[in-house]
Design a protein around this nucleic acid. Structure first.
Length: 483
RNA sequence: UCCCCGAUAGCUCAGCCGGUUAGAGCGACUGACUGUUAAUCAGUAGGUCCCUGGUUCGAGUCCAGGUCGGGGAGCCA
C-alpha cells in the first residue's frame, strides 16, 4: 500500500487536490462538537492559519473524542475537501485520528480565549502555541534571514566574535562575570583581593557587551564584516525596551566614513522591513489587527496615528531625516514644547545628552519619520569615536525610530593612533590591556565605521509588540531567568 | 536604581465609609443541538483574597515592611 503523503497545515490550506488523501500533524486549538459532527481546529505553526478537521461523530469512539482537547497533539489522515462551511476554502474529512499527546483541560493553562501578554510571559514555555507568539517567531526568523541576505548580497562576511571576553573596556555597560571559581571559597592574594590567576582563564573574564572591537579587527583585513550575536548587559534596567541578554547586529566597514555608515544603516533597516512586508503578509496582518486593538485601549492622545503596515511602508518609502546634534538642540530649544515648558527637562544649551522625550519629539512631532542624529559632543560618547576638526564633537550617529527610540548607534572610528591614545587617557581606558586594539592603528590604519543595531528593538518595531520581552522567546531581565 | 500603579476563582476583573455566607464574564465540566468558526442554549463545580507583622470587638478592605508584576525615568541597543 502506498504511504499517505504528509502535508503541513500551510501546504494543506494551499492545496487544490480535492478528493485526495493526506496526513497532517498538529496541535488542537479548539474542538466544537455537536450531535453528528465535530470540528477540530488544528495548527502546526507552519502558518498563522488553522486547518479545520471534520469528524463524523458516529465513526469514532466517544472516548477518543473526549480526550481530544485544546492543546492535544494529533495525527489525522483523511480526505481533502472543498469546505461546506464559509470560514475556510478547504477542510480535511478525518478517516483516522491518532492521539499523540493529551492535554488535560483541567491543567492546561492556554484556553480558547484571549490571554494577557503578562500572563503569557509567565508561561513562556507554552506561549509559542498562541497565534501572537507564533506570528512573532515567524517574523523574527524572516528578519534574521533577511539580515544575513542583505549583508551577503552587499559583500559582507559574518564574523563570530567571542562571547566570553577578558576586555572590560568596551564601555557599553555593566558586565556579567564569568568564572569557575568556588564562590563560597574564593582564593585570595595577600592584600585580600581575589586571585584570578586561579580562575579558568587565569584572569578576569566577562560576557561580552559588544563585538565591535573584535569586528574592527576583522574589518581592517576583510573590509566589510558584520556580527550578529548575543550580547549581555548586567544593567538593572527595568523597561519595555531593555534586556539583559539580547541580540545585536554590528557591521564594521573599512574605507568608510560616518556618512557611509548612515547610508548602510538606512539601507539595512529598509531592506529588512521590505523583506518582511514581502514575505510575512498573513502574520503582519494579524499583528496589525492585534496592535490596533491594543491602541484602542489607550487614551485618544496617546494613540499612534499610523497602523502597523502603514508605518512599515512609510519607513521604507521615505528618506530618514539626518541632522546633527547641534541642529537638534537648536530645533528643540526653539520648539513650542520647550518654550511652553512641556518637556520635563527643559533644553538649556549645548552639551547635555538628549532625554528620550526630546528624541521622541524630534521623531514623532518634528519630522514624523526616522531620524539619524550625528556629531554628538565628545564627552557624552565612547573613546573610540573619531574626533571632528572642531575638537568638541565626534562622528557618532544614532538612528531613532518612532515608539521604540534608539534602534541603532554607531560612529566612524578614530583611526589616528595618537588621537585614540589621547582619548583613552582622557577617559581612563586601560591602554595596556587594549594593546591588540591599538595595534590596528599602528599597522595600516585606515578610516572605518560601524554601528550596533539592537535586533529585538527592531523586531519590536516590525511586529508592533510594545514590550521587548514579547519579541524574544525567553527574555532575560533583572530577577527573571525562568525557562 | 528612582517615581507611579497593581496583586481576589484557571484567565480578565468588580468588591462602596472595615461588618455576618466573597461576586461577574470568559474558560473547565455535564446535558441539549443536523455544518460549527474563540459555536450557541441550560446547568454544575471551582477561593491560602501575594507574604509577614500591626491597628481593631471584627480586616479582602486600614497601616508598615517585603515579594512579584505593569507603566514611566535613568543606563543603553
Amino acid at each position: 500500500m502506498e504511504k499517505i503523503k504528509r502535508l503541513s497545515v500551510r501546504q494543506m490550506l494551499d492545496s487544490f487536490d480535492y478528493g485526495k488523501t493526506f496526513q497532517v500533524m498538529g496541535w488542537v486549538r479548539t474542538k466544537r462538537i455537536s450531535k453528528n459532527v465535530a470540528f477540530i481546529t488544528l495548527n502546526d505553526g507552519s502558518t498563522l492559519h488553522n486547518l479545520q478537521v471534520v469528524v463524523d461523530v458516529a465513526v469514532f469512539p466517544e472516548d477518543l473524542l473526549n480526550r481530544i482537547n485544546t492543546g492535544a497533539g494529533l495525527t489525522v489522515e483523511g480526505t481533502l475537501l472543498e469546505s461546506a462551511g464559509s470560514g475556510q476554502r478547504v477542510e480535511l474529512a478525518a478517516a483516522t485520528i491518532t492521539l499523540l499527546g493529551e492535554a488535560d483541560p483541567d491543567q492546561y493553562p492556554l484556553q480558547p480565549k484571549k490571554h494577557s501578554l503578562e500572563f503569557l510571559r509567565e508561561i513562556a514555555h507554552l506561549r509559542f502555541r498562541t497565534s501572537t507568539f507564533s506570528a512573532v517567531a515567524r517574523v523574527r526568523h524572516v528578519m534574521i534571514f533577511a539580515v544575513h541576505k542583505f549583508f551577503t548580497e552587499n559583500g559582507f562576511y559574518n564574523i563570530h566574535t567571542p562571547i566570553i571576553t577578558a576586555s572590560d573596556a568596551e564601555g557599553a555597560g555593566e558586565m556579567f562575570r564569568v568564572t569557575t571559581l568556588d564562590l563560597n571559597k574564593l582564593p585570595v592574594v595577600e592584600d585580600g583581593r581575589i586571585d584570578y590567576s586561579q580562575d579558568f582563564f587565569g584572569r578576569e573574564t566577562n560576557l561580552t557587551v559588544s563585538g565591535q572591537l573584535e569586528a574592527e579587527l576583522a574589518a581592517l583585513a576583510l573590509t566589510k564584516v558584520y556580527t550578529f550575536g548575543p550580547t549581555f548587559r548586567a544593567e538593572n534596567s527595568n523597561t519595555s525596551r531593555h534586556l539583559a541578554e539580547f541580540w545585536m547586529i554590528e557591521p564594521e566597514v573599512a574605507f568608510a566614513d560616518n556618512s557611509d555608515n548612515m547610508d548602510l544603516a538606512e539601507d539595512l533597516l529598509k531592506y529588512v522591513i521590505q523583506y518582511v512586508l514581502d514575505h510575512c503578509g498573513d502574520d503582519l496582518d494579524f499583528l496589525a489587527k492585534r496592535q490596533q486593538e491594543e491602541e484602542m485601549q489607550k487614551k485618544q492622545e496617546e494613540r499612534f496615528a499610523m497602523g502597523l503596515l502603514e508605518k512599515l511602508r512609510f519607513v521604507v518609502e521615505n528618506q530618514f531625516e539626518r541632522i546633527t546634534y547641534t541642529q537638534a538642540i537648536d530645533i528643540l530649544k526653539n520648539s513650542n514644547y520647550n518654550k511652553k515648558g512641556k518637556f520635563q527637562y527643559t533644553i538649556e544649551g549645548w552639551g547635555a545628552d538628549l532625554q528620550s522625550e526630546h528624541e521622541r519629539y524630534l521623531v514623532e512631532k518634528q519630522f514624523k519619520k526616522p531620524v539619524i542624529l550625528s556629531d554628538y559632543p565628545k564627552k557624552i560618547k565612547a573613546f573610540y569615536m573619531k574626533l571632528n576638526d572642531d575638537g568638541e564633537t565626534v562622528r557618532a550617529m544614532d538612528v531613532l525610530f518612532p515608539q521604540i527610540g534608539e534602534v541603532a548607534g554607531g560612529s566612524q572610528r578614530e583611526e589616528s593612533y595618537e588621537k585614540l591614545l589621547m582619548r583613552m587617557k582622557e577617559m581612563n581606558i586601560p591602554e595596556k590591556q587594549m594593546w591588540w586594539y591599538l595595534d590596528t592603528r599602528r599597522f595600516g590604519s585606515v578610516p572605518h565605521a560601524g554601528f550596533g543595531l539592537g535586533f529585538e528593538r527592531f523586531v519590536q518595531f516590525v511586529t508592533g509588540m510594545s514590550n521587548i520581552r514579547d519579541v524574544i522567546p525567553f527574555p532575560r531581565t533583572p530577577k527573571n531567568a525562568e525557562f
